[in-house]
Design a protein around this nucleic acid. Sequence first.
DNA 1: CCATCTTTGTGCACGCGTTCACAAAGACAT
DNA 2: ATGTCTTTGTGAACGCGTGCACAAAGATGG
Lengths: 259, 259
Amino acid sequence: MATGRTHRPATRSRGIPEATVARLPLYLRALTALSERSVPTVSSEELAAAAGVNSAKLRKDFSYLGSYGTRGVGYDVEYLVYQISRELGLTQDWPVVIVGIGNLGAALANYGGFASRGFRVAALIDADPAMAGKPVAGIAVQHTDELEKIITDNGVSIGVIATPAGAAQQVCDRLVAAGVTSILNFAPTVLSVPEGVDVRKVDLSIELQILAFHEQRKAGEEASSQDAAQPATTPVRPGSTDDSDRKGPDGDVPAVMPA
Amino acid sequence: MATGRTHRPATRSRGIPEATVARLPLYLRALTALSERSVPTVSSEELAAAAGVNSAKLRKDFSYLGSYGTRGVGYDVEYLVYQISRELGLTQDWPVVIVGIGNLGAALANYGGFASRGFRVAALIDADPAMAGKPVAGIAVQHTDELEKIITDNGVSIGVIATPAGAAQQVCDRLVAAGVTSILNFAPTVLSVPEGVDVRKVDLSIELQILAFHEQRKAGEEASSQDAAQPATTPVRPGSTDDSDRKGPDGDVPAVMPA
DNA sequence: CCATCTTTGTGCACGCGTTCACAAAGACAT
DNA sequence: ATGTCTTTGTGAACGCGTGCACAAAGATGG
């Protein structure tokens, strides 16, 4: 980022906000469920409830796509499913490779929702020679040496990285060099990629830590006086010899750590 | 939402922005790596680069925690690791249960980064009686019947749902009823929970769809004239018999779908 | 002790996203 | 055809998050 031209200058015409794009799959899922129940139309209120969002937000989101929907009635389910699918690019087939077939990679390969919507697992790739040839989720694992060939032969543009953290950047580089321009990263690392390549990361550990923060907040809200756990190591502020200059954003933090 | 009091009224004192909280784990990870390399201090510029963010943003984030850091020098690595850990609540031990020990659940149970930072897998729970007693990641799987007992006995407040979508809401309800107040949901469903319970979702399918959107955009940017795939079913606009009223947000969308 | 140099901490402005609230549009009944 | 009623689509206001740019703080050298 911040290199050369700015990431994308508000994106030409068709400026669908990123936040809206991120919600479209949610709507699509809710709509698909309605479609399977043969529900013909749905109001913004109902659909918003199903997707877990505000109805005004939903309407505004849809307004970016166009003026689908009929006032006084709602949205035609089938039609909207098609429009959103098309907008998301799910009307075409996306071959995907998964690199790193450990526990997680295997789980991803077996994940049903994968193939359901336009995505197709083109190959499973692992660095362990012992894995090569072994079938996972009905697909034979191939060795990393084949990576470039697989990408080009299948025209793969989306790659999933499920390797250990140490290997992720290297795998990423090879994927990008071979032509992949979108990466879903499960490894706990910050990947650096050239401009034009999209990276999304899924990080279990980060999600848990965010939950822990809120959990701690909740716990400390009422019984805020009793400190639970004392850490084993208690670092001392580097420069200052006394602790009296500790200043939290509020005054509510005891400026102490038992020495 | 929009029910009674608003979700949390900007959260009393100690107002650390949600966006900042979400980045703290990133900083923590980068700092831990530095710590292991015995680097004593780090500047905001360096640390920001390692975490993949803007340095001004990082400094502002830290300013919410307090005035750690020394002008002209930077931040003391060890000290900052401790401060962030404490802020995130990682200085205490969080017992966690994983419900749904399929491919994904097993992967999560085996995930190393789990135990590393304050989190401890207290139990693995599955609805399949055949799974009961089988060891996964060195822990014997327990049956769903035990769920409530496990939660209360271990004082579990964080639950991970890795069940099929159909079972997720039911499991969620039981977890909440038993005392869990933070949930990490891997099932592709919108969970509804009472106020005071936090839910974070991780959804592979959604991430892929977002990538597909950008991928399609990139592909269609230069060679924008040739349409790739024609969908099998081509829904017709519900109410109107002619298609001439189609109005995209721009004029660039051909107002047609082959009938 | 003073000058210089580095790096933090933050005031400010800007842009994006959310939400409210309402006019316009269309369905439906009479 | 006309009126009523439902629901969409959106203008406008607001709040949050980001990034710039700089003053203040402290280290370091003479």
